[in-house]
Amino acid sequence: MAKDMKHIDIEEIQKLGWDELIPGAALFSFREPVEDVVEVPMEERPYAPTNSHEWQVGDWRVEKPVYNRDLCIDCQFCWVFCPDMSILSRDKKMIGVIYEHCKGCGICVEVCPTNPKSLLMFPEHMDNDEALKRWPQKEEKKKD
């Protein structure tokens, strides 16, 4: 972090008009310098308010993906193909969905290989426990 750069609070920025800028202001990803970002997991990073991680786009969604731990085989297809970094995976295990960042595109459900799927789209207003109760049963393979 260069010394002559000013760290600006998000409240200060929000008071400004759309065409106003604070000269010398820099928007940093982190509140304090992080030596090696790759080593620090998302939960432990000192995010600055100007990092988009602190914001949310969850209200774009109409349907949300619900995760069923009992069926999951931890293949991580949902993790690698999620465009919004919303699949939380730690120690090779899938933990859950970050609903603040999920835009509800449904890719994770499409790529899920289990039968029945361990991720399914449910209406946004439905409770996750309610969704888990309504989970479909295993589909028999169609014989051609």
């Binding site: 990092n51 297809f77 919004d84």
Partner: peptide, 29 residues
């Protein structure tokens, strides 16, 4: 893929790309 999933993303969520955009997937990978 399991080993790959240990990576900590350096590209953050809540950006304004369309839902289901490939750009994000490529940048992440």
């Amino acid at each position: 893929l399991k080993e790959f999933s240990l990576s900590n993303d350096r590209f953050e969520g809540a950006n304004l790309m369309c839902p289901g955009c490939s750009h994000n997937i490529i940048v992440r990978e």
